[in-house]
Amino acid sequence: MAILEVTNVHKSFGSNHVLNGIGFSLEEGSVLSIIGSSGSGKTTLLRCITSLETADEGKIVVNGNVVFDSENQHKFTKDEIRKARLSVGLVFQSFNLFPQYSVLENVTLAVKLHAKDRPDYKANKKAIIEEIEAEGMELLRKVGLAEKRDAYPCELSGGQQQRVSIARALAMKPDILFFDEPTSALDPELTGEILKVIKGLAADNMTMVIVTHEMSFARDVSDYIIFMDDGVIAEQGTPEQVIMNPQNERTKAFLSRFQQ
């Protein structure tokens, strides 16, 4: 069964129709890259799936849980939306780390807050906190920042900040991790360290959806590519099909801008 099913999603801002019937599905453990020119609706699509925006129409199912369904009149409560979000993680283009917290605190803050809902929290508080911090350190090791655990975000390079934000998203143990142009805010020489971390996650079979302009990276890491144009999926398929042998004229025109 697919871990993510997006069906006929529409979204407008006023008269601006940004998404015009997007549909795709994703298997567990696979990596999907979404490419397309700026303004084609890639960010809006990720924001609809992660419930930062509410779609106007369509259906979104994450790991069997309906996150959004315009057919079903059931109104999602704030709490239901909050719970649904726990199954998806999002890494922002601009990191959005919490400046007043250290690296390790950034990674563990939300997990610690959620742990308070556990029935055994009061009894095992100390052990639970220790376990969360140990897991946080494990994630920092994974992104190569264990020695920065006590640093503050302002003391890190952009690449390091983005790696912390990846660790922070992973700490929630999401079913699917979404990346919105994770290297776009970085100096070119810093993109490599992020791409390496994402490749490492792909090797661990993390299910990921990556919006990116790094074509060779998308080709190497993805099982599947979607090319978005004007709020629709203009072309989709394997990297060989979409990036190496595009059929659609707009895909060709878009990719040719990257070959130069």
């Binding site: 992660t50 419930s51 930062l52 909050r82 719970k83 979000r85 726990l86 998806v88 993680g89 999002l90 922002f92 601009s94 959005n96 780390l97 919490f98 803050l109 939300a110 807050l113 959620h114 934000s165 922070r168 998203a169 929630m172």
Partner: peptide
């Protein structure tokens, strides 16, 4: 910045 609120939202904070 709006991003601070959004980061909290995707982390499921109230």
């Amino acid at each position: 910045p709006k991003g601070q609120y959004e980061a909290c939202q995707v982390l499921g904070m109230t």
